[in-house]
Design a protein around this nucleic acid. Sequence first.
DNA 1: AGATCAACTTAGTACAAGAAAA
DNA 2: TTTTCTTGTACTAAGTTGATCT
Length: 728
Amino acid sequence: MAVIWRGNTQDRLYQDTISSGGGNSHKHKDKYKDKEHKHKDHKKDRERDKSKYGNSDHKEFSEKKHREKERIKHEDVSTDRHKDKHKEKDHRKDEVYVPISLSNICPVSFSSGLFIRCLFLFFRTEFKPKKIKIENDRVDKKTKKRKQDEDIKPKKTQKNKKGEVADGKKKAKKEPEEKWKWWEEERATDGSKWRFLEHKGPVMAAPYEPLPSKVRFFYDGKQMKLGPEAEEVATFFAKMLDHEYTTKDAFRKNFFKDWRKEMTSEEKSKITDLKKCNFNEMGEYFKAQSEARKAMTKDDKLKIKVENERLLQEYGFCIMDNHKERIANFRIEPPGLFRGRGDHPKMGMLKRRIRPEDIIINCSKDSKHPKPPPGTKWKELRHDNKVTWLVSWTENIQGSIKYIMLNPSSRIKGEKDWQKYETARNLKKCVDRLRNQYREDWKSKEMRIRQRAVALYFIDKLALRAGNEKEEGESADTVGCCSLRVEHINLYPEKDGQEFVVEFDFLGKDSIRYYNKVPVEKRVFKNLQLFMENKQPEDDLFDRLNTSILNKHLQELMDGLTAKVFRTYNASITLQQQLKELTSPDENLPAKILSYNRANRAVAILCNHQRAPPKTFEKSMQNLQTKIDAKKDQLSDAKRDVKICGCDWLKKAVERLEEQLMKLEVQATDREENKQIALGTSKLNYLDPRISVAWCKKWGIPIEKIYNKTQREKFAWAIDMAEDDYEF
DNA sequence: AGATCAACTTAGTACAAGAAAA
DNA sequence: TTTTCTTGTACTAAGTTGATCT
């Protein structure tokens, strides 16, 4: 295997560590001493140097215009909102599938030096000042003398007219309250996240209810009564009996170890082998319970619903700065067995019950403080308005802190989201300059700079995540860009008729596999060969780089720039470009929505957003196929009849059947293609909602076709402010 | 300079709820 | 209706980032 990685035909023009000024060596990474390399000219050397990149088609940014437009728009936020309550049927099923090729969505392109220079000038003169005010204090601390003059947001607030500005503000307790448009208001400039915060605290997990005595546990074939502590943990396992987790060694081992900690010494001495434990009756009991729940009468179901609603009303909201805001997760996570993703070394460990004594409450001093349950105390009550959380506790598996925070529809989340897309749009303004820069850096005489530049190229071109280093044994072995190892890529000077192909194969976040073969520029290829020289498969590809170095560099290139901004930028720009490309004016509504979904899908593919094929997938595909077959039969019958009789109405029927058949087939293809692709994540986290809103407005598509209720709440700001000509 | 911590975003999955089909 | 399939929501794990500690 390793042989492949150490090609012997390299022509390197590399001389390392002439300066290395900052001393960037890493602890374990210095084992590869850089070498002197000579440049051996190769035949093909020249031909590829013209970027392969250039052919991508979104060169034309018509920047200035947009900027001008944007400025005007921001200053004059129209308040008329489309309040269409379109009640149309869902047309998903009418979608026509058109495949997307990955090559279509390659987001990278470069333009001429002149243009870059212009951009650069623009950046120098206009970009810097756009610092978001909220961060002032941090900036000050860093003594980065930065002038924030006007910022778009506050500015447009001042111009906010049209009277109807949130009036219910003063008495947030009043119920209906005109929807509050926080995006038309001034933002805090002092780093505080709120001025007033009041809430009722978390909902604690329901206490453990011991099993009825008829439900037995057997050890080594003999019945055994467990004490409540051990029993509770046993039920966690019993509930998962059907899950393949319980067959995994690590899971069983971790579980058993933690379970034993909950046992009395007597239990501990008896129960020494998990294999001898029989949880079946428990498992059956819980299954029966959930069946019973499903079979409950409507009345009982309603009662539960009402109770849930009550809980939501009582604990699901808080008051933040005069507004009632929805809390995202107001329930404390109940105890259970830890389910890590992928090959997690800690799977099966006991996630312990959180007590009030573990919980930190954050709220205003002058608010009504949440009361701990009778007879208990909170761990701490604090009043920190520099953070957004209401409740926190430390979880026992990784020792990380968990928080209760607000819903995405809240001001505090919305502002942040908006800001995220503004940063991405700023990147758009200077991305060409940056791309030229890293291409230059591929030639640097410093290894660390080359590595940085190649990594950045991957992040930009392939939308890879930054890739922090992780502590071994603490979590599943996954990587991102900076933490890629030699074993995660293969280099092919030639593959499938393309030159300089890099094959990626690694597990990313959530242990989702990233597999991709991409042709890269020759320089990148040569650099990769260089980085891999004299390394073992398990060595870091970018041994002179980590996320902190990379982000520091990015910060210097553009204010607020970090690695993840590239993902946001490339996702959003891809959506915009795909929408432009795919939407044809004369299409009907379902076809347009299909176009939207296809654009969305392009982004999901770019970001590698996958899902497990739905459990019922095969079956539902089969059902669909049956339908298709039936339709085909019907059709051929009808055709035969036409031949015999030839009357008009029969011909019509044939046409109709053909159409129906096509729809079904299209639906099948579409579903098949979406089998492993998840659209939700990109829609929720990467796509500037204003692009979608503008598209809807432009083509008269009801926004409900694109965003469901929750999504409309989250993106209320965008729905309110984006016009049909919005440009990302 | 690296390790660790804190805070927050991004992620897929399980299951409930709702809609469509039978 | 009841059953089946689809969509929405809750849940919580797993990332990124920047600050702070050592």
